[in-house]
């Protein structure tokens, strides 16, 4: 499932998958601005068929946080 997550992040942020790490964030990826962040949330909701809460949307600034939010919705990640 992590592969799928990384695929989506790579597509939305327009960076190679190899650049994406657990610690990747709006700080470390140049293309990750608030707009892309929202597009990413949107794309993840479709891909994993979940609906994030406003609080989760606000706290999705790193790959680590996104993984935690996905786990909250019962998505199994390795």
């Amino acid at each position: 499932m992590s592969d799928k997550l990384y695929d989506v992040i790579a597509e939305v942020m327009n960076v190679p998958i190899s650049q994406i790490k657990n610690e990747s964030s709006a700080e470390t990826l140049e293309t990750w601005d608030s707009f892309r962040g929202l597009v990413l949330m949107d794309q993840l909701e479709t891909t994993f068929n979940v609906k994030f809460t406003l609080d989760e949307v606000l706290h999705s600034k790193t790959v680590y946080e996104i993984k935690r939010n996905l786990r909250n919705h019962g998505i199994l990640l390795d």
């Binding site: 608030s34 929202l38 949107d42 994030f52 406003l54 949307v57």
Partner: peptide, 15 residues
């Protein structure tokens, strides 16, 4: 989308 609206005053959902 209320979340997008409240988060960033987005009034047409990105989708």
């Amino acid at each position: 989308d209320y979340r997008q609206f409240l988060f960033g005053d987005i009034k047409v959902a990105l989708n």
